[in-house]
C-alpha cells in the first residue's frame, strides 16, 4: 500500500517534468536571459539548457555596452572595463562548457558593440572559429 502510494507519487512528479524536446521548444521562444534562468529550476531543465542548441551572447544582458572614454572619471571607466571583462569571461566559460559536453550547436549569436579592437578582436576571432568549426548558422 505504502509502496503503491510512493510509486504513484513518483509518477505524479514525473508528469510535471516536460520532455527535453518540449523544453527546447519553450527555450527557443525565450530571450537568452530568461532561457538561462530556467537552468536553476530543476535537474531536467538544467540538462535541457546544457543540450540547448542555441548559443547567444548579448552584451546588453551584462550591461556591458558602454565604451570607455578619456573624459570619463577613472572610476567609471574601470567599472565599464570590468563589465566587459565579465561578459567576455562568461563567453569563454560557456564555450568551454559546450566543448566539454560536446553539444551540437545549431545557432550562434554574438551581440557586441566594442570599439576597443585590440582588446576584443583576438577573442572574437577565437569564438567565431569555434562557431564556424561547428558549421552553425550565424546570426551576427
Amino acid at each position: 500500500m505504502e509502496l503503491q502510494r510512493k510509486q504513484s507519487k513518483q509518477e505524479d512528479e514525473q508528469m510535471c517534468d516536460l520532455p527535453e524536446p518540449i523544453i527546447h521548444k519553450i527555450l527557443f521562444l525565450l530571450n537568452t536571459k530568461d532561457a538561462a534562468r530556467t537552468s536553476v529550476l530543476s535537474k531536467t531543465w538544467q540538462r535541457a539548457w546544457t543540450s540547448f542548441p542555441r548559443i547567444s551572447f548579448e552584451e546588453l544582458d551584462f550591461k556591458a555596452g558602454d565604451i570607455e572614454q578619456p573624459n570619463y572619471y577613472p572610476k567609471t571607466n574601470k567599472a565599464i572595463k570590468m563589465k566587459k571583462e565579465s561578459f567576455m569571461a562568461h563567453i569563454d566559460k560557456n564555450l568551454q562548457s559546450f566543448l566539454a559536453h560536446n553539444s551540437n550547436v545549431g545557432e550562434f549569436t554574438l551581440n557586441l558593440t566594442y570599439h576597443d579592437k585590440e582588446f576584443v578582436l583576438p577573442r572574437v576571432v577565437k569564438w567565431l572559429t569555434f562557431a564556424t568549426e561547428r558549421k552553425v548558422k550565424m546570426n551576427r
Partner: peptide, 20 residues
C-alpha cells in the same frame, strides 16, 4: 516543480547565472 538539486548545487548555479 520542486528543486531536486543536492544542497549547494542550486547556490552554485545561481552564482553562475547571476547575470540572468
Amino acid at each position: 516543480l520542486e528543486s531536486d538539486f543536492k544542497p549547494g548545487e542550486e547556490e552554485k548555479l545561481r552564482e553562475e547565472f547571476a547575470w540572468s
